[in-house]
Structures are given as C-alpha cells and as structure tokens.
Simulated scan of single mutants.
Amino acid sequence: MPWRRYLMRLLPAAILAALLFLGFRPQPLLVDTEAASLGPMARTIEEEGRTRVMHAYRISAPLAGQVRRIELEPGDLVDAGQVVAVLDAQVAPVLDVRSVKAAEARVEAATATLDAARREVEAASAAAAFAEAEYARLRTLGAQQMVARNEVEAAASAAAQARALREAAAARLSGARHELDAARTALAFSGSLDPAASGVVALTAPASGQVLRRFLESAQVVAAGAPILEIADPALLEVEIDVLSADAVRLAPGMPVLFERWGEEAPLEGRVRRVEPGGFTKISALGVEEQRVLVIADFVSPPELWARLGDGYRVNARFILWQAEEVLRVPLSALFRRDGDWALFVLENGRARVRAVEVGERGGRFAEVRGGIAAGERVIVHPDRELEDGRRVRPRQNRD
C-alpha cells in the first residue's frame, strides 16, 4: 500500500537522525563532588620551630690557659658549686739557646745592678749619718751662739739631702732585687710543665642541672673566653618559632598552639608566651628574602608526655587563630568568585546549578558557609572552566 511504502522510506531517515542526535548531543561532564557537612573547623598558621632550654649556663675560660681533660659526659647530672673543669695557667714558652744565654746575661746584669745598688745604699747611709751628726753638733753650738745661724741651717739642709739620697738608694736597691727575681724566674721556669709552678683555676657549675654540651674533651690550650661546657635543666623547655612578620601581627600572648610531628602521633598543647618585637631577614629555600619574627611558646601538656624532648629538637607549630566545634563547611576548592560574590556549583538532578553563598571563616581545607546551602547537599569540587549553570554532569566519585 502507498502508506507502507512511504513509511519504509522514512524509517531509515528517522533511525539516522536518532543516531546523529545521540552521537552529537553534549555528554555529561565528569565531576568530583563532596557533601556540605557540619563539623569542627579552625583557621591556623603553620611554621617549623625548635625546642630550647629556658636557662642555659655556658662555662667559659676566664683566662688563657690549659684545660685538663674533662670527664663529664653530656647528660651527666651536676650540682651547683661542683667543680666541672680545671684550668692551669698557660705554660711559659720554651727558650732556645740564644734566648737562654740572653736570660742568663740578664740575670748577671741584674746581679751586678743589685750589688751596685747595695754600695750606693752603704755610701748614702754613711753620708746621711755624717750629715746628721754634723747638724746635731752645729745645732748645739748654735744654741750656745758659738756659730752663725746660717751655718746651722746649711747643716740642716745637708742632712735632709743626705736622708733623701739614702731613701733613693734604698728604692733603687729594692728595684734591683725585683729585676733580679724576674730574670731568675724567666730563666728557671721557661718551658716548665710542673703544675705547681703555675696557678690553678677551678671552674664550678653555677646551677644544678645536666651537662648539655661539651665543647672539648681532651686537655688542650684555650684562649680567654673559649667555651668549655654548657649546663642546663632539660625539664625547663620552651619552643621558638620564626614566622613571617605578616603572620606575627596576628599572634598574641596566650594564643593556643599545637606541636605536631615531634615524634608521636598525638600533638602536644602549648601557648604563646611572647612575640618578640624585633624582626630579622631570612632567605627561604627558594631564595626569597623574607622578614621573620621569633615567637616563644610554652608547653601546656603534662611534662611526662614530652619528657623525651631535648634542646634543639624540631617540631611543627600550628597556631590556632580561630576555631569552632560545629559549623556548616564546604571544601575551599568548591568556591569561586562570581560578580564579586562567592559562589559554588550544587549537584541537582544530574545538572550543575550555580548557587551564591555567604562565606565566613576560611581554614586550610574548608570554608565556613553562613547561608545559601544546607548540610548534605553535594557541591562540585575543582569545577572545570567549561562547566556552566545547567550543564549535565555525572559524579566521578564521592569525596566525604
């Protein structure tokens, strides 16, 4: 019949049109989704820090000398006032043959000078005795008016001069004795290794604690001010963290901080004690010049939890700027800007729908949503640039 022939002619065209429609129609876009949820959230700053003892005492050499071998080991307990190191005065240098001969000559010269000084003292003493006797004789005659007054005064002046010369000779004699003693000492003790020939200084611990560091072990010569031992109480620990100056202005004393990756799974609790007022420049691993500030924090957790930490141990500090126990949150990767406001894509009946939302606090992974979405609704994370409002989508996997 004619209508059957007509239908048979239209059927292939309809099938072809259906195949073309199915082949060229837009395919659903694969997306990752995650549900908006209620849960805890915090806004934090993370930086690396290291522990340090609060009160460390560094024992240094008060003068140049030779430190005897130190028997104390790091970790040994010491009491306040205990002798921890002994310092011998520096040994005199050994003289060569020429220097020895010169030293012997100085001894001989000092001996001769001493003999001459003794002769001068004898002569001056004799002259002073004569002048005083002459003055006494003339003074008696003057009282009897048997000599002129000016002769008595001249005798008094001569006696005074003689006494002064005697005292000067005695001073030269004393100086000659000291010069001879010095010359003999330089000759006798040059290169002497006898501890009794030199002074001994005992260095004591200023406070009770443990030996933290030992800067030398064997006996050796040290200069004045050279460090020998460092003593501290390892139970008194604090943490120093250098943070960016832009982050330091958001920190304040009393703010909570968590210490993580210190060796155990459970974090340790702490509290900011001081944000230092002075900053310093530091070059990062990428070669970027940064302005950093030191933040000092104390442990709040019981000491038995962190008793194995010591001085200079590395920790990761997470400062808590804001936290809440239960807020409506969505992944940060789901948010984007649209006409100056925050928005996201919500999965509705297999299609992506743009939804404007009000965003509150933002943390490391989540953002607080204060309106525009309900808990349980699925949002598209990492939306593709091709994604538009109303586009058919198909979830690739659920991220909950």
Rank of each mutant, 00 (worst) to 15 (best):
L19Y: 08
A35P: 05
I45V: 15
L38S: 13
L16E: 10
S60Q: 12
L22H: 12
P40M: 04
Q27D: 06
T44C: 05
R58F: 04
A42Y: 00
L16M: 15
E73S: 08
P62A: 08
V67P: 00
V78N: 12
Q66P: 04
R69W: 05
G49W: 02
A36V: 13
A61E: 10
E48L: 12
P28Q: 13
V78K: 01
E73T: 10
A18F: 08
S37C: 02
T33W: 02
R69V: 01
Q82W: 01
R25C: 10
L16Q: 03
R25Q: 15
S60M: 14
R58P: 01
L77K: 14
V31E: 08
E34H: 00
G65A: 01
A80R: 15
L22A: 13
R58N: 04
S37T: 09
P40W: 09
L63Q: 15
L20E: 06
Q66E: 09
S60E: 14
E47M: 07
A35R: 06
P62W: 10
F21S: 12
T44V: 14
G65H: 00
T44D: 10
Q66K: 10
L38R: 14
I15Y: 10
A61Y: 05
M41K: 04
S60G: 11
I45E: 04
E71F: 05
R52D: 08
G75E: 04
G39A: 10
R50Q: 03
L63D: 03
T33K: 07
L22N: 12
E47Q: 11
R52A: 11
R50L: 04
L19A: 14
V53C: 08
A42D: 06
M54Y: 00
G75A: 12
L38A: 13
E46G: 05
L72A: 12
L19T: 11
P40D: 03
Q66L: 02
L77D: 04
V78M: 11
R50E: 11
D32I: 09
F24M: 11
Q66V: 01
D76V: 09
M54V: 13
M54P: 08
A80C: 10
H55S: 14
Y57N: 07
Q27M: 13
V78D: 00
R25L: 00
P28G: 00
L20C: 09
D32H: 14
D76S: 14
I15R: 04
P74H: 05
M41Y: 01
E71K: 04
G81W: 12
L30I: 02
L16A: 15
T44H: 07
G39C: 07
E34M: 13
E71A: 04
L16D: 01
R68A: 07
P28W: 11
A36K: 01
L38P: 06
P74S: 07
V84H: 00
P28D: 12
M41F: 09
E48W: 07
L72M: 11
E71R: 06
I59Y: 09
A42T: 06
L20N: 08
E47I: 03
T33Y: 02
G49M: 05
L38Y: 14
R43W: 07
G81F: 07
G65K: 03
L29S: 03
